[in-house]
Design a protein around this nucleic acid. Structure first.
Length: 256
DNA sequence: ATGGCAGGAAGCTCCTGA
């Protein structure tokens, strides 16, 4: 089973990129973030016509998440239970024995912003919920745009980013809190190219100059990590015409 | 130190993203 995560930065604009990917080299599950589309306008029919199922939780202009899958979904949950939040940032679903949580973690804007406080509160609630999910579902994948670069090697210019949003101590502690539950940053289970990133600013020709950060992640419970064969970043999709500013990440967890 | 680019909604400019 291949599971992927991709921040599309508007599904409407990225629809042909998605359908092309699903046509040529489809993962079994694709988790999308920043769909930026209200549920009544979600292009479900186009995705279903391509032979996939899809569940979604969106809103106009901001946020929005969806899970596209070969197999039908069960036990769909929108949002973090018991955490009041009008922003559509989480959707979870079950595939066979595997549970998939798809998250668009708040950006934070800057460390002195109210949005940063919201981000940390949000991550606290997210972590408490995932602790329960792990007990219920030993085969758990937590994927999405975390808006956190876990380590210096995940940032093209660690000096410039030091203490900034995405890289601050509190954010990295929150990320380590997720790992503390037993989740594994699957990307680092394997040898990876130097300067592996998942997001590059649209400005300054950042993609071509390799100026990126690794903020999109696939975290796996021990039971799934054991079956993980490879994880890679699909830079080709970031290199297309009119791309999202994020590249997808895909993990193969079909077992040895 | 600042702005650069892109998307969306509104409406001919502003907010947000990371």
């Amino acid at each position: 089973m291949k599971i992927a995560t991709w921040n599309v930065n508007s599904l409407k604009v990225r629809m042909l990129h998605l359908l092309g990917w699903l046509d040529t080299d489809p993962p079994d599950i694709v988790c999308l973030q920043e769909t930026k589309i209200d549920d009544p306008k979600f292009p479900a029919a186009q995705i279903e016509d391509a032979g996939f199922h899809v569940v979604y939780s969106g809103q106009k202009t901001y946020n929005g998440v969806a899970i596209v899958s070969r197999e039908p979904v069960a036990e769909t949950v929108n949002g973090i239970p018991d955490f009041a939040d009008e922003q559509k940032r989480v959707i979870a679903a079950t595939f066979g024995s595997a549970r998939v949580v798809n998250a668009y973690v708040p950006n934070g804007q800057s460390v002195v912003s109210d949005k940063y406080r919201y981000k940390l509160d949000w991550l606290g609630a997210f972590t408490r919920w995932l602790e329960q999910e792990l007990e219920r579902y030993p085969e758990l994948a937590v994927v999405g745009d975390f808006n956190i670069a876990p380590e210096s090697r995940d940032v093209h210019d660690p000096k410039a980013w030091e203490g900034q949003v995405l890289c601050s101590d509190a954010e990295r502690e929150a990320f380590n809190g997720l790992l503390g539950l037993g989740l594994v940053d699957s990307f680092r289970l394997f040898e990876q190219p130097e300067k592996s990133y998942t997001w590059w600013d649209y400005r300054l020709n950042a993609f071509k100059r390799g100026m990126g950060v690794r903020i999109d992640h696939i975290l796996l419970s021990p039971a799934l990590a054991k079956r993980c064969n490879s994880v890679s970043i699909l830079k080709d999709i970031r290199a297309q015409e009119r791309p999202s500013d994020h590249a997808p990440v895909v993990a193969d967890i079909s077992g040895k």
